[in-house]
Amino acid sequence: MTARVTFISPAMSSSLRQARFDDGGSIDADGAARARAAAASLPAAVRVVVSPTVRCQETAAALGLDGAQAAELAALEVGRWRGLTLAEVGAGEPEAVTRWLTDPASAPHGGESVEDMCERVTRWLAASQDAGGRTLAVVEPEVVRAAVVHVLGAPSAAFWRLDVPPLTATTISGRVGRWNLRLGHPLDSAEAVADH
Rank of each mutant, 00 (worst) to 15 (best):
L16R: 13
A131T: 14
V78M: 13
V144H: 05
R134F: 01
D66H: 13
A61H: 10
A40P: 05
A158M: 08
A74E: 09
T168V: 08
A38D: 04
D103N: 14
P141T: 05
E72G: 14
L86H: 12
A38I: 10
A33V: 08
S13W: 02
V164I: 06
V46M: 09
W124N: 00
E58F: 02
G79P: 08
P94N: 08
E142C: 15
V49L: 09
G111K: 10
A146W: 01
T59F: 06
T168C: 09
T6E: 00
D163G: 06
P186V: 03
A32S: 14
L84H: 13
S128R: 15
A192L: 01
G25E: 04
E77R: 15
V114G: 11
A74C: 14
R123K: 06
G79R: 09
L101D: 04
V5K: 06
S128G: 12
D163A: 07
M12T: 12
H109E: 11
W160I: 04
R120C: 08
L101P: 01
I8V: 15
R145P: 07
V46L: 10
S15G: 15
W179N: 11
A37T: 11
V193S: 09
D30G: 14
G64Y: 02
L86S: 11
E112S: 07
L86F: 12
A29I: 11
R20E: 03
G90D: 09
R134G: 02
F7Y: 11
S14N: 14
Q129K: 02
C118F: 01
C118I: 15
G83R: 11
A3H: 05
A137I: 10
V193Y: 00
E112F: 00
W124Q: 05
A147F: 09
S128D: 13
S9C: 07
E115I: 10
S106V: 07
